[in-house]
């Protein structure tokens, strides 16, 4: 048993346990915090697959930005009596499990389709593509134009935020 295999089992266990905790916690705030643990565990698994960039974006975008939004929404909604949510059984509470099962079926189908059911090694191609070095090189050579345009997009958004947040307005 190599170190990588042990690492994988630890991360996978953390991921599964935290995912179970997300759906079983009564307090939505706790559920959201366990979701962060889940995201970080997934990022670790991506790292063991040599997908450095995906791992970093997973932490930055999902565990960082998206979770801040989720927490904000929970706080804004001010769910004081979340007990009500569990008592009201609407079509929504059934559609969740059904959608999850459909997603599981889709994932299993895709995995079986692509790899024929065996996962013994990582494709050398994906090892090369997923590295930060490769992505950085692409970003500053072939994709330098869209990269710079994206920075312009951020600038435009900032100027827009300034004008909308102005104190004096007509």
């Amino acid at each position: 048993m190599t170190f990588e295999t042990i690492l994988f089992y630890v991360l996978a266990l953390a991921g599964i346990v935290s995912a179970l905790l997300v759906i079983t916690r009564r307090n939505p705030m706790h559920a959201a915090l366990f979701l962060i643990v889940n995201f970080v565990a997934l990022a670790g698994i991506y790292l063991t697959l040599h997908a450095q960039f995906v791992a970093i974006t997973q932490v930055l975008v999902y565990a960082g930005a998206i979770m801040v939004l989720v927490l904000f929404v929970i706080m804004l909604l001010n769910l004081q009596n979340e007990q009500d949510l569990f008592e009201k059984r609407s079509w929504r509470s059934y559609s969740g499990p059904i959608l999850s099962l459909l997603l599981l079926a889709l994932l299993l189908r895709t995995v079986a389709f692509v790899s024929g059911g065996s996962f013994d090694r990582i494709s050398p191609e994906s090892e090369r593509i997923g590295t930060v070095a490769n992505i950085g090189q692409q970003l500053f050579t072939a994709f330098v134009f869209p990269f710079e345009m994206a920075s312009l997009l951020l600038l435009a958004a900032m100027v827009g935020a300034v004008i909308l947040a102005k104190k004096r307005f007509p």
Partner: peptide, 10 residues
């Protein structure tokens, strides 16, 4: 607002 010109140019 001066931002008007900036936004038009962007």
């Amino acid at each position: 607002f001066g931002e008007f010109h900036i936004l038009v140019l962007l």
